[in-house]
């Protein structure tokens, strides 16, 4: 299953991120994973929440430029080697990761890694055929 991720353009100024978080909070939307990539003057926040369709609508209504992309949330055990095992599998199969970040914990034992890859189908097939890792939703 594919996870819809929202990316939003922000200027790199104080208060910009607070405004987005505030809008989501006012509307009772709960963040499940969040990542920030930035230059000195602007940045992108990428996030997954419990109500992505609503989040996208609310941000658009407030004049944000956003982009919805398809990513995977892969359940990873919260212990040493949990992530490296997953990355080894991807490397062996020559799957390049465009970007990746961690979700907030999904259970006491696990987190999810949010992963963006170029070849969605190949990735999905690979993980589905693997017993240690599984694609989850947030």
């Amino acid at each position: 299953m594919i996870t819809k991720q929202i990316s939003v353009f922000l200027e790199n100024k104080s208060g910009e991120l607070a405004r987005v978080a505030g809008l989501l909070s006012e509307n009772g939307i709960n963040l499940r994973a969040l990542d920030i990539a930035q230059t000195s003057s602007y940045g992108i926040i990428r996030f997954v929440s419990d109500r992505q369709t609503d989040a996208a609508r609310i941000l658009s209504e407030n004049d944000y430029v956003l982009h919805v992309s398809e990513v995977f949330a892969v359940k990873v055990p919260d212990r040493p080697g949990g992530l490296s095992g997953l990355l080894d599998i991807l490397a062996e199969n020559e799957i390049n990761v465009e970007y990746m970040y961690s979700s907030f914990s999904i259970t006491d034992m696990d987190v999810a890694m949010i992963i963006r890859v170029p070849d969605v189908q190949k990735f999905e097939k690979l993980i589905e055929g693997n017993s240690e890792y599984s694609i989850t939703n947030l």
């Binding site: 991720q5 990316s7 353009f9 990539a37 930035q38 230059t39 602007y42 940045g43 992108i44 990428r46 430029v65 956003l66 982009h67 992309s69 465009e98 963006r116």
Partner: peptide, 15 residues
Amino acid sequence: EMNANNFSDDLGMIT
């Protein structure tokens, strides 16, 4: 002003 045409989730592309 950034617009939807030129925005993606890839910072490298924007740069």
